[in-house]
């Protein structure tokens, strides 16, 4: 830690999001918005009150989910505070 020049470790940033909305952009045409409950070293995440957005040939499909464990493997980008659309 002492040799890390940045002010804030990426995992600390995610840690500060616990209890708040977070926008998760996956590799491929999928995005999720939900309240972050926790995460682990692989950035597998527990999310609550989730809205899932899938881009399909027929248009956008929206799925609402109570609570999920999201596999960290295909996560591309995390945006604290949720997506612009859900605010």
């Amino acid at each position: 830690m002492a040799n890390n020049p940045s002010q804030l470790l990426p995992s600390e940033l995610i840690d500060r999001c616990i209890g708040s909305k977070i926008w998760v952009i996956m590799k491929g045409d999928k995005e999720l918005v939900g309240t972050l409950k926790g995460f682990d070293v692989y950035v597998n995440m527990v999310l609550e009150d989730v809205t899932e957005y899938e881009i399909t040939a027929e248009g956008r499909r929206i799925t609402k989910l109570d609570q999920i464990l999201l596999n960290g493997n295909n996560i591309a980008i995390l945006v604290p505070g949720g997506s612009p659309e859900t605010e």
Binding site: M26, V50, K64, L65, D66, Q67, I68, L69, L70, N71
Partner: peptide, 19 residues
């Protein structure tokens, strides 16, 4: 097999069509 899993959800799902 776990490598195929995107998420595990406890909920009943509700579907809606987006724009």
């Amino acid at each position: 097999r776990g490598n195929n899993v995107l998420y595990i959800s406890t909920s009943k799902m509700t579907l809606a069509d987006g724009a």
